[in-house]
Design a protein around this nucleic acid. Structure first.
Lengths: 152, 152
DNA sequence: TTCAAGCTGAGAAATATTCTCACTTGAGTC
DNA sequence: GACTCAAGTGAGAATATTTCTCAGCTTGAA
């Protein structure tokens, strides 16, 4: 999302495009992997040394609300986020290097309808993620540092 | 899973069926909702007052390894687990009362194959969950306490 | 330039999870 | 049933993440 479009999106909710938010966005724009909050913070500080950890938490939450970013349910102790580019995107995550590939043809409409009918639920959403090894990591199984990303 | 079958499953890995594990299993057998660890602990103590929190954490992890239980990715601060009854079960979770309905016809084989081909990943697993409101909660939208389960 | 929300950084506080360790218990064997 | 010992336990300390607080700063509109 171009900056001006984002500024507009923020503005529509009475929010501002600030220094910290810009730094976090730059970090996200520069990676294809999912990142934990502390790592986003570390990288944001390389762009703007004044960015505080609390602001990164606040910004990630804001971006999640704006659907620019989403949780990735990796089995770590800390929360990981990945950028969303496509609307209604799902994620395929590499267990080796953290690379995130997005896809949107989830084809779950039929399943959703069938489930709703069977269970009498009103279904409001779903989450779906795939895990595996990307091509690079399959060829280099011993190392976890592809693309300069270290697993936490 | 009947107790003897579980005892066997544990035994196969050199593990024991202990007091604490039994208490936790009884708690899980008695609910259809997902529970956070602290709640499992509270209930387990009602069955056996000696059960410690650390043991509940250890037991939940063990049960997850045995695929008798799985994480539910609710957006809470703490980890929630739900029982698995069917093999390869997926979960439909009520946002109101926490009720968990299992289903297994996820029909993702085709999508998995297509994704693997397109991305060159070796796909090793997926997680899929649906969220919504169960029939009871839709009819009683103000209350969150259906089935005696309080949201945390 | 001024102004007022919104936002910030720093550090404290809260809270979930893991670790440690001496003690206990389950279950196999006799 | 008694014995044995590795697996498991409870309690509380330790750790780590996330949230909160608050005085001061920034953004963006007028």
């Amino acid at each position: 999302m171009p900056i001006n479009q984002l500024r507009q999106a923020l503005h529509d909710q009475g929010l501002k495009l600030t220094r910290s938010r810009l730094a976090v966005l730059q970090v996200l724009a520069a990676t294809s992997a999912h990142l934990k909050v502390a790592e986003v913070h570390r990288r944001a500080r390389q762009i703007d040394g004044r960015v505080g950890l609390a602001s990164v938490y606040r910004t990630m939450e804001l971006l999640a609300r704006l659907r620019l970013v989403k949780h990735v349910h990796v089995e770590h102790r800390h929360r990981h986020y990945a950028r969303i580019r496509e609307h209604h995107g799902h994620h395929l995550v590499c267990n080796g290097c953290g690379l995130v590939v997005e896809f949107s043809d989830c084809q779950l409409e039929r399943l959703t309808r069938a489930l709703a009918r069977r269970t009498k639920f009103r279904i409001e959403g779903h989450c779906m993620e795939f895990f595996g090894q990307c091509r690079e990591c399959r060829c280099r199984p011993a190392s976890n540092t592809a693309r300069g990303k270290r697993k936490s």
